[in-house]
Design a protein around this nucleic acid. Structure first.
Lengths: 140, 140
DNA sequence: ATGGAGGGGGATAAATTTATCCCTATGGCA
DNA sequence: TGCCATAGGGATAAATTTATCCCCCTCCAT
């Protein structure tokens, strides 16, 4: 496992939160688990962009940080379920806010991102199913 | 300037928001600017952790993404002021929520972060002044 | 016996982000 | 003259994060 070489600043709340949410898929993972998509294989189907390996790694970090709990059923084939902890649950409104902001400003953001000289291409079709899920949640 | 090699997924709001806020100091920069700390030199004094170069780069990205506006006064010595755009301002509540969550759960987070095998040391004294600022804001 | 579902993880490469170093420019002050 | 403040940015190195490639295990179905 990689070990950090420089001290991590935990001075303000922003940095603490960043440490927990820092990971390409972490907000989405928490979101998914909050939606009851709790098994790794389900999550993989939902987010075709993640690989098995990266999913494991980021879930592990979320677990280390106390945001999710992992329950392993001693079955064969194996069954694993993740669930939010108390504190993990308390993060959902924040993630919700991030998601809503992004969604609400989608057209603007797509435009500026497209103009960003750093960006080559963008792919939009990665988490369609996830998108559907979010819609359903809003309705529910 | 670095150019991305893999397509950026802009599928769900979460990823769009992530693209804007992705940068070690970006949330703090937006926060600072929202607090009227608008000149680069002021920001540097406030956040001793950032270097000149990185500050310029991240501010530039925020500007590219339309979150901040830059006003250059043709003076000597030069004077520059950043301000939030309409959309940038709309992000502040989200950043506020992140900050408050981190602050509210500080002791828990400090503990789990300390136990994280990836983490070596942590530094807490980096943005003290920034901390004061946040306190003042809460009071105000 | 071959392959898939379901879950894990080491080693390593590639991509991306941050940091370091150094140089640009002007005016004022000791 | 030498140094400070202000602001900007290229080139490059170091750190960190993501992705790729393999390999492990067990049952069940083809």
């Amino acid at each position: 496992m990689y070990e950090r070489k420089t001290p991590l600043s935990i001075d303000c709340g922003l940095h603490l939160t960043r440490e927990v949410l820092n990971g390409k898929w972490k907000p989405a993972l928490l979101y998914a688990i909050s939606m009851d998509i709790k098994r790794p294989s389900e999550i993989l189907r939902l987010l075709p962009g993640v690989t098995r390996r990266v999913l494991n790694v980021q879930l592990k970090e979320l677990e280390t940080h106390g945001m999710v709990e992992k329950k392993t059923y001693p079955q064969l084939p194996p069954k694993v379920e993740y669930s939010l902890t108390e504190i993990g649950r308390s993060l959902i409104p924040v993630i919700d806010a991030m998601n809503q902001w992004g969604d609400a400003n989608r057209s603007f953001l797509e435009t500026v991102i497209a103009q960003d000289p750093k960006i080559g291409e963008t792919s939009k079709s990665i988490c369609l199913k996830y998108g559907h899920m979010l819609v359903e949640r809003k309705i529910g």
